[in-house]
């Protein structure tokens, strides 16, 4: 069986201590549930000398729904967020998305922060040492060329986190901690701005920084979001198509504002505003038009293991079906 390489494991006893170690560089990695990092360390695609286990840090825990911005600690387990009754009431699309991540065991260990920081995935990198050696490597491993986009200059491995598209349309922010002069400093950024186009380092979190919480604004009256995931299997799989749609309706049921977020493209998810349809009723025509727009603007790549042209068509259908939930009572909503 695959074994982990030798590692130093630091169990952080304070946020300051964790941030101090993380500031040493990329060879020190933050560890939450370990469901992504441990697998990547075992296959050798991620190299680290030290992992900093964050489990005990109280700053990363807690779900607070009292304010206008709901605060969810980054260290909250996916299962706890997904099953939180208040969150289910406030953000059913989010809890639904989290409940569709991987498998029960992984949701019992994995955390919300961990999902947001999930490494990008690609069929040329999520392989064994031998496989990557046989291929001659790629931009994300030891090689110099991209096999997804021949001649491509940047890594286009896919962001595959189920939580991201839905948090984007909800207008969520993340809280990021770092140390300055020995004190913990917090900054905030929108989830929509958290990701970069470089698959080698797609999360805009610097060495020495740590994602500590997710903040989600409560939805105004008339607003709702829907998440749609497609994978070959109903469990275990990462998404092959991942999209969230949010529509805010006025009192007449016309579109006030709306947006669609799409994951599993490249390293960066895409956010598509629906401004051009403002004032329109939500019907099949609108659904078809929005879906066509998403199809036009999104080009799934052959980076994950499924026919990318089908993924593009499937994305269109999933957007369509998401919007249909607004006017077709029998369509599955979440």
């Amino acid at each position: 069986m695959l074994r982990l390489p030798e590692l130093e494991v630091v169990i952080a006893d304070s946020l300051v201590a964790a941030l101090t170690r993380l500031a040493e560089g990329r060879h020190v990695r933050a560890l939450q549930g370990g469901t992504d990092l441990v697998a990547n360390l075992k296959t050798g695609q991620t190299k680290a000398q030290t992992v900093v286990a964050l489990g005990p840090l109280s700053e990363l825990h807690g779900i607070d729904t009292s304010g206008e911005m709901v605060r969810i600690g980054a260290g909250e387990r996916l299962v706890d967020v997904a099953q939180n009754a208040e969150l289910q009431e406030l953000f059913p699309a989010l809890t639904y998305a989290l409940a569709r991540i991987a498998s029960p065991q992984i949701r019992n260990a994995g955390t919300l922060g961990g999902n947001l920081c999930l490494d990008t995935r690609c069929r040329f990198i999520n392989q064994s040492d031998l496989w990557r050696e046989a291929m001659g490597g790629c931009l994300k491993s030891h090689g110099h060329e991209c096999h997804v986009i021949p001649g491509g200059g940047g890594c286009v491995a896919a962001l595959s986190a189920d939580s991201v598209p839905v948090l984007m349309v909800l207008g969520a922010e993340v809280e990021i901690a770092r140390l300055q002069d020995g004190a913990v400093l917090l900054r905030r950024t929108r989830v929509a701005d958290l990701y970069d186009t470089d698959g080698l380092r797609h999360v805009r979190i610097a060495d020495g920084e740590l994602l500590t919480a997710v903040l989600v604004p409560k939805l105004p009256e008339g607003a709702r979001a829907v998440y749609r995931k497609w994978a070959v299997r109903q469990s275990i799989d990462f998404p092959l198509v991942s999209t969230a749609v949010r529509l805010d309706l006025d009192r007449d049921g016309k579109l006030k504002q709306g947006k669609v977020a799409v994951g599993v493209l490249g390293p960066r998810p895409r956010l598509i505003p629906l401004d051009r349809w403002v004032g329109r009723p939500i019907d099949e025509t609108l659904a078809q038009q929005v879906a066509a727009q998403v199809f036009d603007r999104c080009h799934p790549l052959p980076n994950v293991l499924y026919d990318h042209e089908y993924r593009r068509e499937r994305l269109r259908v999933e957007v369509l079906r998401a919007i249909r939930t607004w006017f077709t009572p029998t369509a599955a909503a979440n």
Binding site: S103, R123, N126, V232, R233, Q234, S235, I236, F238
Partner: peptide, 11 residues
């Protein structure tokens, strides 16, 4: 066993 997709109990 992630990429070679064998059905789960839900499939």
């Amino acid at each position: 066993l992630l990429d070679y997709r064998m059905p789960t109990s839900m499939d």
